Every structure is written in C-alpha cells, then in structure tokens.
Amino acid sequence: MGVRRVELDRSVPALLFKVGRYPLHQGAVGAVRSLGRAGVAVHAVVEDAFTPTALSRHLRRRHVWPTSGLENPATLVAGLLRIGGRLPARAVLVPTDDEAAVLVAANQDRLAACFLLPKIEPDLPAGLAGKRGLYRHCVAHDVPTPATRFPVDREQLVLFARELGYPVVVKNLDPWDRLRAPVVAGTTLVRDERRLVDLVGAPHGVLLQAYVPREWAQDWIVHLYAAPDGRCAPVFTGLKLRSWPPHAGVTTYARALANPGLARESARLCRAIGYRGPADLDWRLDLRDGRYKLVDFNPRLGAQFRMFETGCGLDVVRALHLDLTGRPIPAGAQREGRRYVAEHLDVAAFAAYRGRAGAAHRPGTRPGAAGSSPRGWRSTIRCPPR
C-alpha cells in the first residue's frame, strides 16, 4: 500500500510576496510548483511577466508589481491589500524574502483582512533577520554563534577587526539596509585591514564576525515550520556543499542529511523566542571546538526548501498552508539524499571549489554514502548523537 500524500485545502489560494528585484529565485519557483501541484491556486508578486516564477505553468496569476524596497511601508501594505481584495478568498500569504517577512509581521493585523498568516510578535522577525537582534537572542538563549562586534566608527572598525583576526566577515546590520543603503553587497570576507577600510564607508551600518576557516568548518541548513502551539514540525536538516561567492555566499549545491541534534537545537531556539511560521536557519559547525554556531535566521521560506520533504510529500510551504487552513500537519521523517542545485550559480562555484581541491577540507558526504558528491570530494560529516 502506497504512502498517502498530503491533501491541501484547494479552496484557499496562496499569494507569494516579495520586496525588491531578484527575478531568479529558486524558493519562489519551488513554492509555486509545490502548492500548484497540490491543486492550490497560486498567485505571485513578480517584477515583470517574464521571470521564471511568472512563467511557471503552475501559477494561476501573476501580479506585476516591481518594488525596490525604497517605498514607504504603508505603500507596500496598501498594495498588498489591493491584490488581496481581488482574490476569490482570503489567501495564505507567503513572504519569500526577509524584507517581506518583516513588513508582513509588523502589519499583520491590517493584512489579516485579506490574508491568512501566522500570529507572531510583530517585531520578532525584524529582530531575527537583523544581525544585532539575532546576536542578542543567541546570547540570551545560550545558542553558540561566531564572535561578533558592532563598530560605530572607523576606530572601532579597525580595533574590532584586529581583535577578531583576519580574514574577518562583514555583513549589513539590518535586512532593509541591503536594499536602501547597503555598505557591502552581501556577506563579505575581508582579508586585510587596508581592504576593510576601503570597503566600509559607514561602520555603524555593518557588523564584524569571526571567520571559521573553511578547512575547519561545515555549513548546515535547517528549514522548519513552527506551529502556533510551539511545536516545530517538520524540521529538516541538510549540508551546504558549495556557495557563491565561495564559502560566504548563497547556497548553490546542498544535500538533505538528517542531523537530529541540530534539528532539536533549532526547535528549542524557536520555542524559546516564541517564533511561529516557516524559517530558514544557517549553522556553521566549527570543527575546532565541535560546536554548531548560528550564522543566520531567515524568518520566512528559504530558497532551498524544496530540497526537503517527508515520505508523504510534506515540505515547509505545504505545512504552512495546512496549518493556516486548520488541517493537521502529518508527522514523518525527511527523505534522505535529496539534492539542491542552483545551476546558474553552481557552474562558477564548482570551478572555484575545484581550483582549491588541494585544501584540507572538501565538501562531500559521509564516507561510503550512496550518491556522494563528484569524485574525490568527500569529508567526514559530524552529526550529534541521535
């Protein structure tokens, strides 16, 4: 007898919402396919009519609305309500970037007139997507995180970087900064003081973070759904094998790999802070001390979420739809070995990693595991006890 597949409420549509321009977004395409294949009428806010999301055969309707992130939040909320008012029923609202998630949470009472969305403390997503707030949550709840400093002027910038040691990681402080006034283009690895001073013109807009050397690090991904009662189900874990730019950028190649201890730690944090809804967490295992250190907490659907599903076809966006439409979320273990590849970026990432094939640490899977990475790319994967 086959496994019963997840059944969604087809009478409830979904709207994918984004802020800013990023037309090639795997998470949005994955959400359209996942919900659309389950019979849900999926709508999406898109930059134009020719993005991969807009052209998906599983999309019921595209809403062309190019945003920049420079708009007044009230303008964005009003635009969302206009779209929601044209839908046939209250829709499940699915933010696909941090800015959208922060905006939706802060205005959830107004948006509830047209949309179904998780009830959450209005300022919590901003405090998790923002690096200063995330660091404070980690300290308050005894969650390991790389040593972090918040310079306010050029003198502190130089002093803190020397204290942490080079190379040092530089990040924008708040999610809206990357659209409105980015100091750096994204997570940036800086190898010397001269480059740091040239790069950072506004020290108060960035943080500095200690770098865990790639030969002593493994990058792990956790995607989960936190229900209103605080239970996190499902919780998926996977290993990030390549990124672009190398070792500091977005995931280009990853593999689903069960890590029960990391799943429990992620769920514990969500319960402790009262988080509700889908989340995408990035952890770095520091092999020097054996601790998983939280690097990022994205309070929304992650770009790689379709790498993960249970045996009955449950993924994070389907869990969101089930919960908000009053249906139970079925239990089940994740399917092992599923892969995620961002092909348009992984070509460059593969070449970069291959050029460093002589390094002590190479991405891969547990020795002897079926379906391992390209030939010769293996390393020991440490998992906590089950």
Rank of each mutant, 00 (worst) to 15 (best):
Arg4His: 11
Phe17Cys: 02
Lys18Asp: 02
Tyr22Ser: 00
Tyr22Gly: 00
His25Ser: 02
Gly30Thr: 04
Ala31Trp: 11
Ala31Arg: 08
Arg33Gln: 14
Arg33Asn: 05
Gly36Pro: 11
Arg37Val: 04
Ala41Met: 13
Ala41His: 12
Ala44Met: 11
Pro52Asp: 02
Ala54His: 08
Ser56Trp: 14
His58Ala: 06
Leu59Thr: 00
Arg61Asn: 01
His63Ala: 01
His63Asn: 05
Thr67Arg: 12
Asn72Leu: 13
Asn72Tyr: 13
Ala74Met: 14
Thr75Ile: 10
Gly79Asp: 14
Arg82Gln: 12
Gly85Glu: 04
Thr96Ala: 00
Leu103Ala: 07
Ala106Leu: 15
Asn107Glu: 10
Gln108Val: 04
Arg110Tyr: 13
Leu111Gln: 03
Leu111Met: 00
Phe115Pro: 03
Phe115Thr: 00
Lys119Ser: 06
Glu121Phe: 12
Pro125Tyr: 05
Lys131Glu: 01
Lys131Cys: 00
Arg132Trp: 10
Gly133Tyr: 08
Leu134Arg: 02
His137Met: 09
Ala140Leu: 13
Asp153Tyr: 15
Glu155Thr: 11
Val158Thr: 08
Val158Gly: 03
Pro167Thr: 10
Pro167Ser: 02
Val168Glu: 01
Val169Lys: 00
Trp176Thr: 00
Trp176Val: 01
Asp177Leu: 14
Asp177Ser: 10
Val184Trp: 14
Thr187Ser: 08
Leu189Gly: 01
Arg191Cys: 07
Glu193Phe: 08
Asp198Gly: 07
Leu199Ser: 03
Ala202Trp: 15
Pro203Ala: 03
Ala210Met: 05
Val212Gly: 02
Val222Ile: 13
Thr237Pro: 03
Ser243Phe: 11
Trp244Cys: 01
Val250Gly: 05
Thr252Ala: 01
Thr252Glu: 05
Tyr253Met: 04
Tyr253Trp: 14
Ala254Pro: 15
Ala254Val: 10
Arg255Ile: 04
Ala258Tyr: 09
Leu262Trp: 12
Arg264Leu: 07
Glu265Pro: 09
Gly274Lys: 11
Arg276Lys: 03
Pro278Phe: 07
Ala279Cys: 13
Asp280Pro: 06
Asp280Phe: 14
Asp286Arg: 09
Leu287Glu: 15
Leu294Thr: 06
Asn298Phe: 13
Arg300Trp: 11
Ala303Asp: 13
Arg306Trp: 07
Met307Thr: 05
Gly311Lys: 08
Gly311Leu: 09
Cys312Phe: 02
Gly313Cys: 07
Ala319Ser: 04
Ala319Ile: 04
Leu320Cys: 09
His321Pro: 10
Pro330His: 02
Ala331Lys: 03
Ala331Gln: 09
Arg335Asn: 02
Gly337Met: 06
Arg339Asp: 01
Tyr353Arg: 07
Gly358Met: 14
Ala359Glu: 15
Ala359Lys: 09
Ala360Val: 15
Gly364Asn: 12
Gly368His: 15
Ala370Asn: 10
Gly376Cys: 08
Cys383Met: 09
